[in-house]
Write a protein that binds this DNA or RNA. Structure first.
Length: 760
DNA sequence: CCGACTGCTA
């Protein structure tokens, strides 16, 4: 059965470019798949004559024409009537014929669809004719049919719904659907209605219709197009149009699955990725497994989406489980699967395992799976090597890639290697790579720039970095907020606050608005430089820009204010922080304890300590260190020792070098060198390594006592421990030992030091 | 729509 030629092009209005069911060439191009149509019959040879007769004579004369009367008595099939009416050339003529036929034909009862089909031809004609206002014309005809109780053919209904849907006449579309005899409703027409409703924004009604469709005994069960319509609508609206939770979406999809309708791999992957990115990997897991349980076909990409989600959550156990499941279900991993696996091995510093997997996948033994590594996979490995300090191996891998696989390195490849050499302090090498990439026509991006800038700044070449930035900006490569964070942090660290501040101001001029981390880095830098007024000022700017400060910023501010003795402002900031809903953490408490105890306000310090414990933070080594340090400063060595004893006996807090150093220093200064030496022994027992500061304190104490024998003993111990003396050590020992004529011992000590540095 | 590269954790 062939469709009248112009229909298709007229149905396809140019104003709606996106294809879907409404515009649908795919589903509604004709009556090809309409089950209600009778099979084609041989066209009566009389039909062309009838058509020309109808066209050339006035409709008032029809009833007196013998040929037409004969035609009425033995009308052709509904299909032939449809064709005949289509050929009448105008809606008016078609309507006249319709009236004529309806009034005079004797055989209507035996073929009720004759009228429906004839009416369908009228609608088709009307669409062709009246281009200015098709929807309202069709609406008139629809009302006419409704009033005349003419049942709609499925194609007439389709045509009307599509036309009304395009014109956003949703009520009318629904009304057509309701007019349609429930037995003749089919999946296609319901899909069309759903598409109209979702596109038109009446998703409430859409979901109602969908609910009917998804019922177990639905006469018009969903098909692949239904899934597409529903998901497209929901995806575009970003799920919020209906405020659907992921659980509701899953529930809906499972109902599709129960009809044997599954998601294709693209949708499945999109949805799983979406679920994972909303922090609902468990829901993604369920979706994937529901689909498989109910018989859906799943491919590697869906698994990949879930694997990468689990990877982001660091749920390695589930990742392993899922990989095993892939194996069991014989779903072949693709190059992306291997990419995810290798990346996670690299990020867990298991570079050797990553290389093993890489070797295996190219070989033939790996469970018969052969996957050719691609550029991304090579880049993953190159980065992995660079991140563990094997940048030379990374470089070699790039060359191997070129030779063996024929891939040319891209921007990412170069970025990884440049970062690797920067981390190793080989800035020159990085710069060579940078030149090389430009020579090879590989375009550097902002990451290349940032990587180089960070490398330069971290190795004391801030002005070179600034030069590079200017150069790249001239070439049209703009920095982003990361660029500025790198430079601001760097300038702050060398105490060049003015440059840091002017960079910050320059940002907005370059149409690059600062993000939270830019603010944070500047606030931290200013706190470090003790510029608390500026720090507070930037902090309030950050808040104005909508970036709430994080706990790290607040702690830096509170700590900085305490150091500057601005306890009122520190208190204000603390209050501000709690109002912002950020609870003090261990670091906040330690800062305050340290402040109060150093001011000798031990009672307050202990009150804060109590609150810290009540808040669920056990005091740590920093807490005890602050108290011990303060008691030592206040000359209350007994109390300091008491805390120290309590620490080792009653808590699980491991002692560290700092704690010992405080006590040893104080003991030495209080003429209790024996006790200090006994603590040094204690350190050895507890496995705490003494450092240069420890030894310096002891040497000073021993010098006061002129206890030379002990000093020699400790000097040997220091050499044994490969602990390097610093200028203080040398100052103390040089003066003391030359005064007493022990230069020989001094020389051998220095030699031992030289040996120890060269072997280290 | 799934896998690679830049800030920092006081």
């Amino acid at each position: 059965m062939k469709l009248a030629a112009p229909t298709k092009s007229l149905l396809h209005l140019p104003t709606r470019p996106k294809s879907g069911i409404i515009d649908g060439v795919k589903y509604f191009s004709g009556e090809l798949d309409d089950p209600t149509l009778p099979p084609p019959l041989p066209t009566s040879s009389a039909v062309p004559e009838i058509v020309s007769l109808l066209k050339t004579t006035d409709h008032n004369d029809w009833i007196s024409n013998s040929e037409l009367v004969e035609f009425l008595n033995a009308p052709p099939s509904p299909t032939s009537l449809l064709k005949l009416t289509r050929q009448l050339g105008s809606t008016e003529k078609a309507l006249e014929f319709f009236e004529f036929f309806k009034t005079h034909s004797s055989s209507l009862s035996s073929s009720p669809s004759s009228l429906s089909f004839t009416f369908q031809a009228i609608l088709e004609q009307a669409m062709r004719e009246d281009k200015s206002d098709v929807p309202s014309k069709l609406f008139q005809l629809f009302s006419f049919a409704k009033d005349g109780k003419i049942p709609l053919s499925i194609n007439a209904a389709t045509l009307l719904i599509r036309c009304f849907g395009r014109a956003k006449m949703l009520e009318e579309s629904i009304s057509v659907y309701n007019e349609l005899d429930s037995n003749s409703r089919n999946t296609n027409v319901v899909n069309l209605l759903l598409d109209c409703l979702f596109r038109g924004g009446n998703s409430d009604y859409g979901f109602k219709v969908l609910d009917e469709m998804l019922k177990r005994d639905s006469g018009f069960p969903p098909n692949d197009s239904t899934v597409d319509i529903v998901l497209s609508a929901m995806w575009k609206r970003n799920w919020v149009g209906r405020r659907m939770s992921l659980e509701e979406i899953s529930g809906l999809l499972v109902r599709f699955f129960e009809h044997g309708v599954f998601l294709d791999d693209v949708w499945n992957t999109k949805l799983i990725a979406k679920f994972c990115r909303s922090g609902k990997c468990d829901k993604a897991w369920d979706l994937l497994h529901d689909m498989m349980r109910l018989g859906g076909q799943v491919e590697a990409s869906s698994f990949n989406a879930l694997l990468s989600g689990l990877g982001r959550e660091r749920d390695f156990q589930k990742m392993n489980l899922l990989m095993n499941e892939m194996k069991e279900k014989e779903i072949k991993p693709d190059v992306v699967t291997f990419g995810i696996l290798i990346n996670h091995l690299c990020k867990s510093y298991k570079i050797d395992e990553a290389l093993q997997v890489f070797e295996k996948m190219g070989g033939s033994e790996c469970d018969g799976i052969l996957v050719k590594p691609d550029l991304v996979l090579y880049n993953t490995l190159i980065d992995g090597l660079c991140k563990v300090g094997k940048q030379e191996e990374g470089f070699k891998l790039m060359e191997k890639m070129r030779l063996e696989s024929g891939y040319e390195p891209n921007t990412v490849t170069y970025n990884c290697l440049i970062d690797g050499f920067c981390r190793a302090g080989e800035i020159e090498r990085s710069y060579e790579l940078f030149d090389q990439m430009k020579k090879d026509g590989v375009v550097p991006n902002v990451i290349t720039l940032n990587t180089l800038l960070d490398g330069m700044c971290k190795h004391g070449r801030v002005s070179t970095a600034m030069g590079l930035l200017a150069e790249m900006q001239e070439k049209g490569l703009k920095g982003n907020s990361i660029t500025y964070t790198i430079l601001i942090t760097s300038f702050c660290s060398v105490n060049n606050i003015d440059r840091a501040m002017s960079l910050f101001n320059e940002m907005s001029e370059n149409r690059c608005s600062p993000d939270a981390k830019v603010y944070y880095s500047l606030i931290l830098g200013l706190c470090q430089a003790r510029r608390m007024d500026d720090a507070l000022c930037v902090a309030s700017k950050a808040k104005e820009a909508g970036f709430g400060l994080d706990i790290i910023c607040y702690n830096a501010l509170i700590g900085g204010l305490c150091r500057k003795n601005k306890i009122d402002e520190a208190h204000k900031t603390l209050k501000d922080m709690e109002e912002a809903g950020i609870k003090p953490d261990r670091h906040t408490y330690n800062t305050l304890i340290s402040y109060f105890s150093e001011k000798g306000q031990f009672e307050t310090a202990h009150r804060v300590l109590k609150r810290m414990i009540d808040d669920g933070y056990l005091p740590n080594v920093v807490t005890y260190g602050a108290l011990i340090h303060a008691y030592c400063l206040a000359g209350n060595l007994d109390e300091a020792m008491k805390i120290f004893q309590n620490m080792s006996s009653a808590t699980n807090v491991p002692l560290n070098t700092v704690i010992y150093n405080i006590l040893i220093d104080t003991l030495c200064k209080s003429d209790k060198v024996e006790d200090a030496i006994s603590l040094l022994g204690d350190m050895k027992d507890k496995g705490v390594r003494p450092n240069t500061t420890t030894y310096n304190a002891l040497f000073k104490g021993l010098q006061e006592r002129n206890w030379v024998e002990k000093a020699f003993e400790i000097m040997d111990q220091m050499t044994e421990n490969t602990c390097n003396p610093d200028y203080i050590t040398m100052e103390v020992l040089t003066q003391w030992l030359s005064d007493i004529g022990e230069t020989e011992k001094l020389r051998s000590f220095v030699e031992g030091y030289e040996v120890s540095t060269s072997t280290a």
